[in-house]
Nucleic acid binder design. Structure first.
Length: 512
RNA sequence: GGCGGCAUAGCCAAGCGGUAAGGCAGAGGUCUGCAAAACCUUUAUACCUCGGUUCAAUUCCGAGUGCCGCCUCCA
């Protein structure tokens, strides 16, 4: 296993050789959601990105301790609770449940720990007290703020300088604070808000402090990787650094990893633009793995423009992957049952019709795959290695079936290749969770309206017509059979005669 | 205003100093009553423009154009 991973570090804005603090253990923290609404595809991208990183590091033999938190106390949750005449606790636990459903549906593996902010309040209070003692924070009437001026490295992650931040300020200065950049560590609670006792009276934690507290509680004062969406760089992660490093005097995080945003029509997805798409919107219509693969095709740091057309394309690619694995399974069955001969004499076999193929070495592909993943988790490149392999295995199988013979070197390569395909797709990318045969069949049966156009279909009527047409076909009355197919096509229904009967799908272009 | 990112075939997207991965769509072929599906083959000789460095640039540097993000809660 080649562990020379290069990771793009937001701190240095460059790729750095990854060296974990402990030789065989990786400490990783990823900022989770604020639980007040259904997860959107931006969340999906973030957590799929880190899921792949998590899976890959484990595959390289690292023992990864992975923490992904929940923010279950915050302004937005309080607002939602008020709107729905509910409680903060009920709202957050509801959306945590929904989130888990989505994560499971997307085959995102469970982190080692999933702490909630509200379970870590005492740790936060300790942290804040320590910061006050050290002069890094101050209290004003029950609120506690972090004194940004006290941390000389402020801005090192987002590469901003404090003076310019002040000059470019878009928000009104809070007169109470010493400096408008100072951020809340502890907020005095208002009436009817959840609150906790603290040395500064009843209140609740500010947002940033929770991640520092949870990271330190579960992983220690210094960790290897801290990740999240690129929108968290400033101010959230910048603030985390300030708090944590002021408190411990140690380096908080060695590698900061941030994933790029999901755009809709080339614009940022946001609630205010009313263009946000939930995970449910996608997986109601497409296989969850299509979303995963859609993300894998683009490097995690790039923007990605979401469209159902793109998912459709990814779905087709996914089908190709399943088809390849299925073809192999069928082929193995064929070898067993009927007689495809495995020839040992490579030279003569190839002369007879092996196609002059040069024997392949699976190690080259494995190496290319690893080198790609080691280069800042370049999944797009790694997946292209897999597709190369797919073409090779399909070809070997096709040639062998046509000639009724397979040379032993090809047979060995084929076995090794398919097992690598399966293992890397499922192990690293989290794909191929379904049985290939089932996946393919359900896909052909699937009534898809391409491009997001829904079509009304009278299923009974179509089934009757299909039966009628098959009668004609049995009697070799092909003209009448074609007539039925043609009439359905005009309504946007495509018939397909497959090995397991006649199926149909819609073109999505026409309305019934 | 400050900081940062991006611009590669019809679409999506890797590559980032040695002459363009991969996917989708399209075309041709194999198979099939015909089709479809599947599989194979095929698809970039100005890599936004103009300069520069170099034996060599899509890749580095400079200028320009066009998109986008952060600077406010946000994955």
């Amino acid at each position: 296993m080649n562990r020379n991973i290069y990771i793009y570090n937001t701190l240095s804005l460059s790729k750095e050789l990854f060296k974990p603090i402990n030789e065989n253990r990786v400490l990783m923290y990823v900022c989770g959601i604020t639980a007040y609404d259904l997860s959107h595809i931006g969340h999906a991208r973030a957590y799929i990105t880190f899921d792949v990183i998590y899976r890959y590091l484990r595959r390289l033999g690292y023992n990864v301790v992975y923490v992904r938190n929940f923010t279950d106390i915050d302004d937005k949750i309080i607002k939602k609770a008020n709107e729905e005449n509910s409680t903060v606790e009920k709202i957050s636990s509801k959306y945590i449940d929904e989130y888990h459903k989505d994560m499971n549906a997307l085959y995102i593996s469970n982190p080692t720990y999933e702490p909630k902010a509200t379970e870590t309040i005492p740790d936060m209070i300790n942290l804040i007290s320590g910061l006050i003692k050290k002069g890094n924070a101050y209290e004003i009437n029950g609120d506690v703020f972090f004194r940004v001026d006290s941390f000389k490295d402020y801005g090192k992650l987002s590469h901003k300088n404090i003076d310019e931040l002040i000059a470019g300020s878009r928000i009104p200065v809070n007169e109470e604070k010493e400096n408008f950049l100072d951020f809340a560590l502890w907020k005095k609670s208002k009436e009817n808000e959840p609150s906790w006792d603290s040395p500064w009276g009843k209140g609740r934690p500010g947002w940033h402090i929770e991640c520092s507290a949870m990271s330190m509680k579960f992983l220690g004062e210094s960790i290897d990787i801290h990740g999240g969406g690129s929108d968290l760089i400033f101010p959230h992660h910048e603030n985390e650094i300030a708090q944590s490093e002021s408190y411990t005097g140690k380096n908080f995080v060695n590698y900061w990893i941030h994933n790029g945003f999901v755009n809709i029509n080339n614009e940022k997805m946001s609630k205010s633009l009313k263009n946000s798409i939930t995970v449910r919107d996608v997986i109601d219509k497409f296989h969850p793995e299509a979303l995963r693969l859609f993300f894998m095709f683009t490097h995690y740091r790039s923007f990605i423009d979401f469209s159902f057309k793109g998912i459709e394309s990814a779905k087709q690619s996914l089908l190709r992957l399943y088809q390849a694995v299925n073809l192999y399974d069928e082929f193995k069955k064929l070898i067993k049952e009927s007689g495809i001969t495995v020839k040992k004499e490579d030279v003569s076999a190839r002369a007879e019709g092996g196609g002059g193929r040069t024997p392949e070495n699976i190690e080259n592909y494995k190496n290319d795959f690893e080198v790609s993943m080691n280069d800042d988790f370049n999944t797009a490149k790694a997946i292209s290695v897999i597709f190369d392999l797919v073409r090779k295995t399909n070809k070997i199988i096709n040639d062998s079936m046509a000639q009724n013979v397979i040379i032993s070197k090809d047979a060995a390569f084929l076995d090794a290749a398919v097992s690598f395909i399966k293992e890397s797709l499922s192990g690293v990318f989290g794909l191929l969770n379904d049985d290939p045969k089932r996946f393919i069949e359900s896909n052909l049966m699937n009534i898809t309206a391409g491009g997001g156009v829904y079509t009304y279909i009278d299923e009974e009527e179509i089934k009757k017509l299909i039966d009628k047409r098959n009668e004609f076909r049995k009697n070799k009355e092909y003209a009448s059979a074609d007539e039925i197919r043609k009439s359905l096509l005009e309504k946007g229904i495509v018939l397909e005669d497959t090995g397991f009967g006649t199926t149909y799908k819609t073109t999505g272009a026409k309305q019934l």
